[in-house]
Nucleic acid binder design. Structure first.
Lengths: 227, 227
DNA sequence: AATGAGTGTAAAGATTATGTAAACTTTCTC
DNA sequence: GAGAAAGTTTACATAATCTTTACACTCATT
């Protein structure tokens, strides 16, 4: 029912990376791996995963600090912290680092999978239907209606609208959109594709597309969805 | 207008029982509670609730086992499992115990209510026949009629149709179909088998297969059955 | 007023997903 | 084991969607 979730695993032990990748893919996730904070950062520059699994001890950075950085830059991405048995500090167990969950090495794969599932589920409301000013977005049915009338959206348009709807009131940069929706897919930096899809979307959901009510342009920065 | 739904809550923590009862009644449900499997059993002997909320750890029985028993005796009663944070096993998250949903303690009341709602809405009694717009699907007899005329479906076609019927209005991805109907059986990721069966199904149940009325294509995502 | 950066917009071209028939393979039935 | 039924793959057509391109417009800045 759901789309394949993309997970980023950051750990410096190549064996763990290998095992995790194999298992995650077995359970229907897409796995991206990095063996250092530097590499992870490069990946995060390009795409936003649905969940991050982060080892507490990396060669080039402190896990807690990294976790905080991730949380700052990619607001809502859930993080599961991997820790060695003897380094469980209060900070980690109390989840004060901002991590959403933690798991102690050595761990059972099933246990990790279970936590991943729970974590991903927690971040998404069950009743995924949202109504703003006559615009109803039903994630489950993949359907959008405006004042009761059905609005036909293409996949990209729907993704865009969902992204805006789940970040209401916040300004979304084109860069963020690119990371979220296109991810690692090729899209030249000078491409106007995002703008074009946005126009199409406006034409479909705005009463008067040249004076948009839902998706507002924030000059020089990006767009935002009305509060 | 629906009748008041009756829920059975089974948990050995009196505080949780109290809170749940209060909240459920606040949201218009009738709550029956039991603090042990023995008492729950006595209640179940007497009445069949519309939904059961079951704690994973009870003094007199294993939650998973109990869940299985419930499912055997009162087939179609949906069960929501309550689990402690550190006892989420893969069995529960994978819902392999037969539970229809699960929620991790401590939980938000709203979250639980939402899941109850979703669960009740989703549960279509399998032993009953379902009729939508002239299309009658008799799950038990494995028979489908369209405006009274018998429709001959192959096993795969029937499975497909059932899957759609029991998830009305929701988008079903090909991936989900593959998991549900083919399971671990081999089916290459690039296979068009699902599409082909779907076309056959459409040719049999749709008035005009090129403008389907029942099974609607959701571009880029999958298909959905009409509401 | 000219410049240039950022954005709006239409239309053309490129690409991809889906529809569909038909060939081929497997499984079932007798 | 032959024939029939069901399932799967293949191949291609077509429709849907995405991306690029080109140009217009706005609005600071010089």
């Amino acid at each position: 029912m759901d789309k394949k979730k993309k997970l980023l695993v950051i750990d410096d032990d190549p064996d763990i990376l290998k095992v995790l990748r194999a298992n995650l893919e077995l359970y229907g996730y897409t796995a991206v791996t990095a063996d250092s904070w530097t590499k992870a950062r490069a990946i995060l520059d390009d795409q936003v995963p649905d969940l991050i699994i982060l080892d507490l001890t990396l060669p080039d950075g402190d896990g807690l600090e990294i976790c905080r950085l991730i949380k700052e830059e990619n607001h809502r991405v859930p993080v599961i912290m991997l820790t060695a048995r003897d380094s469980i500090s209060d900070k980690v167990t109390g989840l004060e680092s901002g991590a959403d969950d933690y798991i102690v090495k050595p761990f059972e794969t099933l246990e990790l999978i279970a936590r991943i599932k729970a974590c991903l589920r927690r971040s998404v409301p069950v009743d995924k239907a949202l109504t703003i000013n006559g615009l109803e977005i039903d994630m489950k049915a993949h359907q959008v209606t405006l004042n009761g009338k059905n609005v036909e959206l293409t996949p990209k348009e729907f993704e865009l609208l969902s992204l805006f709807a789940s970040n209401r009131g916040e300004v979304i940069t084109r860069e963020f959109i690119r990371k979220k929706i296109w991810g690692d897919a090729k899209l030249y930096s000078w491409s106007r594709a995002i703008d074009v899809h946005l126009q199409h979307l406006r034409q479909k959901i705005e009463e008067n597309p040249s004076e948009p009510e839902f998706i507002i342009t924030v000059a020089g920065v990006g767009y935002k969805f009305r509060e």
